[in-house]
Design a protein around this nucleic acid. Structure first.
Ligand SMILES: [Zn+2]
Ligand SMILES: [Zn+2]
Ligand SMILES: [Zn+2]
Ligand SMILES: [Zn+2]
Lengths: 163, 163
DNA sequence: AACATAAATGATATATTATAACATTACAAG
DNA sequence: CTTGTAATGTTATAATATATCATTTATGTT
């Protein structure tokens, strides 16, 4: 029941190979359509993020890149991560200064996360735009929310008027 | 009209002296009640944050502290800011790595913000716990939301079971 | 008051996260 | 083949945050 209404993934056991494959294919297809270069470096960084539903810091990503022989200096990791975030293949978890692969490729969404402070697992919840209600997803998965923060970036009225 | 239904403050002109006074008094009262030390340093940091509805980085706070002769090393600022955040007198804006005074003292709330990327003004919107809908406040103030992120910290089911 | 304890602050050093700036390579359009 | 553009390589440094230990200040107890 719960698994049919809730779209969350990460706390529950699931075929993670499908997550990975689906995300890579979605990125490939999107880049094709939009004439973006899904280079080996960018693909590798996405694969690294997709290994787990867990957020990785840029330097952790960099270490794994180095092991793979694909770059060894911070800008390499940050640039690939920026690309992935910019095009929605990954998200930055601000409170962790870390990055996670998008768990909802193909679906237009505003990112909303439940972050376990013990195991660092990050679950992405489905959400439309400016309206959020995590309580349903939280109780469906047994996640106990302790603290929530919503941050909306945009342009305020007076700044908009100046332009 | 809008100003009566919307509780947001910061984009609109208002008696900011009241904001400041109210916040300081609320912090004083709360510390009294809870036997917390509202020391000169902590008070000064709150006053610094209260000067504007804008987020300040820890090092900006530190500079102002130094000018006031109240401390000159990073831990001084970070400790005072932690105290303020821990007790709800201020919030951290994660996407800016910066801190803002709470605009809703006395009201139990989960922080929700609208952050102008041009003028860096931070407006705190009233919100209950895990349910958010900024669209009403946004349209009331003429803020155009470009991107929204919700991050909930807590403990997941399997970690809870271990304890 | 004298003492013990805990909390806050001072100070030094260092860790972590992120970007600026410029050189080089890869590749496509003209 | 040149010219422009995007991506990557490389070096250096900026910005944010914390660990650790010393010192001072507040609090509670005898
Ligand atoms: Zn998965
Ligand atoms: Zn996503
Ligand atoms: Zn105000
Ligand atoms: Zn607040």
């Amino acid at each position: 029941m719960a698994s049919e209404t809730s779209k969350s993934v990460g706390f529950e056991k699931h075929d993670h190979g499908l997550c990975l494959e689906k995300a890579i294919k979605a990125a490939e297809a999107y880049c094709d359509r939009c004439n973006l270069q899904f280079t080996p470096l960018r693909r590798k960084v996405l694969e690294i993020l997709l290994e787990e539903h867990r957020a990785l810091g840029a330097y952790a990503v960099l270490d794994l890149l180095r092991e793979a022989g694909l770059g060894s200096q911070p800008p390499v990791a940050y640039r690939a991560l920026s690309f992935l975030v910019e095009h929605g293949f990954a998200h930055k978890i601000e409170r962790l200064n870390a990055f996670v692969a998008c768990a909802l490729p193909d679906i237009l969404h505003s990112p909303a996360f439940m972050i376990c402070r013990k195991c660092d697992t990050v679950v992405e919840a489905q959400s439309p735009s400016s309206s959020f209600d995590l309580s349903a997803t939280a109780s469906a998965t047994g996640f106990e929310i302790e603290q929530t923060t919503l941050e909306a970036k945009g342009v305020c009225n007076s700044c908009a008027e100046m332009a």
